[in-house]
Design a protein around this nucleic acid. Structure first.
Length: 504
RNA sequence: GGCCCCAUCGUCUAGCGGCCUAGGACGCCACCCUCUCAAGGUGGAGAUCGCGGGUUCGAAUCCCGCUGGGGUCACCA
């Protein structure tokens, strides 16, 4: 029963209520992987039947996020397809849903409900007050003849249309993530869900299901939070006389502290945020694939092609995964290190532009300089967004907010200033200005001054970069250029000992 | 609270009855390399497989109960 032969068609159906967060990307990714693995189609559909929560621009943003990680769709809002349109509000306007509501009304599986939201709330409050453990609403009209329902509706009285759920028996479905195990619910636990709102707009339950059927969706892979409503969907398929798709409920991604699932409000996990901070699409793709799925327990770094080839629902874990930004960060570093110098330079350029270090677009000279600087920070980068900070001293004058940092262990200010001046002196006429010559001269000078390499190089580092942690010294000196190095050495020495050595 | 789902190192996971005195990765701690930081290398700490019963010659692996965690109970998706 978990085997499926035929053309696979899956969909990702987000609602445009805000930015797409990482959990949504994961759901989309698993659908995409499943489709690609089976050579099927992946469809994107926008579920915007909730006018109240609609956020303008959210659909475009969400599509951009998906494309960023490399998830492209075969049919969707912007590219169309055989079942267009792929936006539910448009489908509603086209009158797609209403006939299906009529069908259920006619075959007795749905009914007009005239209970208002306020009345419903009151009924619920009363029931709970009476000690009812769970309020299961079923409207009185479900027993009325359809004609009477229609007559009342015709008077202009607001109504919703509800599904007439059975009160006895059980409803069950199988879940592919749980090895095809049955999940069963007693029908008495159910209530009559709304299919059509009083505004005439279909509710998610109805709209998504009609669309899935019309679009010939074969597998529904969605987040775990949907299992509770799946029995209603199964009942709906039965009411229509349609074959339901196969279900697979993906484990939720829990918050870092394990308390609850990720949420847009409490957690900074919008896909955009990672894009901005400089996460590579490949790294995000790889990390997310491992949130709930694993290949063999050993192999973690895999190409997209390998993941597509290896992906299977049988290896999707039913238990929740937990959001682990440190692992993502590590993986991003791995992917960055695998890039070429040119690729990294291109990738960090926008960040340097934003920091005001280079022009937009970078000129030839800037690009050449960037290519020279990139190797210095390449393997130190974990997020591309760190680049401006790591390279700041190449583009801005340095300041010594804490001059004490210039002074190496076991040395005093005067000696350090003297050493820095000696360095400056030594480098003044150095030719050529390259790594080998610089290292040669400075090591020799260190010995002459009876300073350990760590002491001398450390103070030079702070003098020219303004910080204790920086890229390797000699490459930095070369990239900085003689003039700036000499200048900074002088400034640093003067900062430690204002007078130039002449006492009084 | 009702109902549903889940349960192996701090985290992600391997394990689908004997190969497990439980393997890998992130993180953490040492050491090596070394001009700092990274990267890389080596090693280490870290899980009585949530607890209790069964089944079996034999259970992390199967069954039951308990506990814990999560989800869901909308005219939201």
């Amino acid at each position: 029963m978990t085997e499926f032969t035929g053309s696979v068609r899956v969909r990702f159906a987000p609602s445009p209520t805000g930015y797409l967060h990482i959990g949504g990307v994961r759901t989309a990714l698993f659908n995409w992987l499943f489709a690609r693995h089976h050579g099927g189609q992946f469809i994107l559909r926008i579920e915007d039947t909730d006018e109240k929560r609609y956020v303008p621009g959210a659909a475009d943003d969400l599509m951009a996020s998906l494309r960023w990680v490399g998830i492209e769709w075969d049919e969707g809002p912007d590219i169309g397809g055989p079942h267009a349109p792929y936006v539910q509000s448009l489908r509603h306007e086209a009158g797609i849903y209403r006939p299906f509501v009529e069908q259920l009304l006619e075959n007795g599986h749905a009914y007009f409900s005239f209970t208002t939201e306020e009345e419903l709330e009151q009924l619920k409050a009363d029931a709970l007050a009476r000690g009812v453990k769970a309020f299961r609403f079923r409207g009185p009209e479900r027993e009325w003849p359809l004609e009477r329902q229609r007559e009342l509706a015709a008077t202009g009285r607001p109504y919703t249309v509800r599904l007439k759920t059975p009160t006895t028996g059980v409803t069950a479905f199988r879940d592919l993530v749980r090895g095809g195990d049955r999940i069963e619910v007693k029908n008495e636990e159910l209530y009559d869900i709304v299919l059509l709102k009083s505004t005439g707009m279909p509710l998610y339950h109805l709209a998504h299901l009609v669309d899935d059927h019309l679009m010939e969706i074969t597998h529904v892979l969605r987040s775990d939070e949907w299992v509770a409503s799946t029995p209603y969907h199964v009942l709906l398929y039965q009411a229509f006389g349609w074959d339901p798709p196969l279900f697979a409920h993906l484990p939720p991604i829990l918050r870092q502290d394990g308390r609850g699932k990720l949420s847009k409000r409490k957690d900074d996990v919008s896909a955009n945020r990672f894009w901005e901070r400089g996460y590579l699409p490949d790294a995000m793709f790889n990390y997310l694939a491992l949130q709930g799925w694993s290949f063999d327990g050993y192999t973690e770094i895999m190409t997209r092609a390998e993941i597509v080839e290896r992906f299977s629902l049988e290896r999707v874990q039913p238990s929740p995964a937990r959001w682990n930004p440190e692992k993502l960060l590590d993986m991003n570093g791995i992917y960055i290190r695998r890039l070429s110098t040119e690729e990294v330079a291109d990738a960090i350029a926008p960040y340097l532009v934003r920091a005001g270090f280079i022009s937009d677009p970078p000129g030839d000279a800037e690009r050449a300089y960037l290519l020279q600087l990139t190797p210095l920070i390449h393997e130190r980068l974990k997020e591309l967004g760190e680049a401006p900070d790591l390279l700041a001293f190449f583009f801005r004058d340095v300041t010594y907010d804490d001059p004490a940092l210039l002074i190496p262990k076991k040395l005093d200010a005067a000696t350090t200033a003297g050493a820095l001046r000696a360095v400056r002196e030594r480098l003044l006429l150095l030719e050529p200005w390259d790594h080998a010559r610089l290292e040669e001269e400075l090591r020799a000078l260190g010995e002459e001054l009876a300073l350990k390499p760590g002491q001398l190089f450390g103070t030079i580092r702070v003098a020219i970069t303004g910080r204790t942690v920086a890229p390797p010294l000699f490459d930095t000196l070369v990239a900085l250029g003689k003039q700036r190095v000499l200048h900074r050495l002088a400034v640093a020495a003067a900062t430690l000992a204002p007078a130039t050595g002449e006492h009084r």
